[in-house]
Amino acid sequence: MEVVLALAIGILTASGVWLLLRPRTFQVILGLSFLSYAVNLFILISGRLRTDAPPIIARGDTVDASLYADPLPQALVLTAIVIAFATTALLLVMLLISRGLTGTDHVDGEDRDQ
């Protein structure tokens, strides 16, 4: 499972960085989204990979903490997802504003090739 996750994060990051460096605004936004997916997975594994371990301790009894998954990264990831979602929405609005005002979808607001 470690290999699969590491590959997933690596591929997402690589495509994200490549897209981020492209000249079209939509590609940049997609790149940032890919990067944020990669980062979200990365945060999740900072609490170590566990299967079949619940993050929430049942009420009452004294428990062995080693049987449970670390709940904190899961909470962090939720926050990160929400914030990334909001900023992506904001970037889409910026894309539309920029497209409307400059008439091109180039990130610099002007096409150098033409």
């Binding site: 962090l76 910026m94 607001g109």
Partner: peptide, 27 residues
């Protein structure tokens, strides 16, 4: 609009670096 687009893109990317740093320190 032009400057804002650059500003937002750079800062969103930077926030991702922030998160990577935080999770490395946490781990």
């Amino acid at each position: 609009a032009k400057a804002g687009l650059h500003y937002v893109a750079i800062n969103v990317a930077t926030s991702l670096l922030f998160l990577i740093g935080v999770s490395l320190i946490y781990s």
